[in-house]
């Protein structure tokens, strides 16, 4: 029983981690919690059902959905956040702006798609597999593996590529990065693209699992992923991954013990407990926040 829930939680938790990394990416580079991320997540799945409804075929619809969601990330930055930065507005203005954008995206999705729940296509014919007495669907395994691969790719990109080096430089000092020849606007846009695209992939994986989408679907998931990011230490990749897994597994186990009506509060109970003990998150260190 516990094992069963652990499997469910691991699959979902890995997808949370993928969303959490989006918070961490943007937070790392701008010290901003991007609360529009949940709606960006919802946008991804809706783009896929849109293109599928126009008979693009599932794979092209997925690719288009991911790219467009990445571009939405850039658009959010260019239209709303970058102008605020240029005016040296306080961080709180940007924060409120991302909340506003979140609702704008949600409402646009409602206007375009209606607010009711729609079915999301099955990504592939899923089978149930029995591992050590627990039932696991092949979709869950795919969700887990795809998320792991993507997180790995993102990690390698940030650690070992030239653009990753530029991202880490901008994260430490935008001024110095620009003096070294880095086009910081491009790097910030690229970071938003990565955040949007990874949210879209998570959205497609999770929607492929539940096979349901609706405009406000990103709200709770977005908050949980944010909790995962903070839990691990926001701005840290490995923190997001561990945070996502902890929340995914805890939520699945709690749902089976107390009933699924209580699953959503578990993430936040854990978050509050961790923050009381370790204010900077599991892996966060104090004092390295800003140079």
């Amino acid at each position: 029983m516990i094992l069963q829930q652990a499997f469910n939680g691991l699959a979902l938790g890995m997808a949370y981690a993928l969303i959490a990394v989006g918070y961490s990416l943007v937070f790392g580079i701008l010290r901003l919690v991007n609360f529009s991320h949940g709606s960006v997540y919802a946008f991804g799945a809706h783009m896929v059902i849109l293109f599928v409804s126009y008979h693009f075929g599932l794979a092209p619809a997925i690719i288009l959905g991911v790219v467009l969601t990445g571009l939405l990330g850039i658009l959010i930055d260019k239209m709303a956040l970058s102008p605020l930065r240029k005016k040296n507005s306080p961080g709180i203005s940007s924060l409120i702006t991302t909340i506003g954008i979140s609702y704008i995206i949600q409402n646009l999705l409602m206007m375009a798609f209606g607010s009711e729940k729609k079915t999301f296509p099955e990504l592939f014919p899923s089978k149930m597999i029995t591992i050590a007495g627990a039932q696991v669907s092949s979709m869950q395994i795919v969700m887990f593996i795809a998320s792991v691969i993507l997180l790995l790719v993102l990690t390698l990109l940030v650690k070992f590529t030239k653009i990753g080096l530029a991202m880490r430089s901008v994260e430490q000092s935008e001024k110095i990065a620009s003096l070294m020849g880095i086009n910081t606007n491009f790097i910030i846009a690229f970071t938003f693209f990565l955040g949007g695209a990874s949210a879209a992939i998570a959205s497609i994986l999770i929607s492929g699992y539940y096979q349901i989408v609706y405009p406000t679907m990103g709200f709770v998931v977005g908050l949980k992923a944010f909790a995962a990011a903070v839990l691990g230490g926001i701005g840290l990749f490995h923190g997001s991954i561990v945070g996502g897994l902890v929340i995914g597994v805890a939520e699945a186990i709690a749902a089976s013990l107390f009933g699924s009506a209580y699953r959503d509060s578990v993430a936040f109970i854990i978050l509050i407990l961790v923050l009381v003990i370790r204010p900077a998150g599991l892996f966060g260190k104090k004092g390295i926040e800003k140079v």
Binding site: K162, A177, G181, I182
Partner: peptide, 25 residues
């Protein structure tokens, strides 16, 4: 090219990475 007042190195990059950033262009 500039070497900044107070050095302005990127503290959480290694020495080698700092040099790589210097050669970004």
């Amino acid at each position: 090219s500039i070497s900044l007042e107070g050095r302005g190195i990127l503290p959480r990059l290694t020495v080698e990475e700092n040099l790589r950033v210097g050669a970004y262009s």
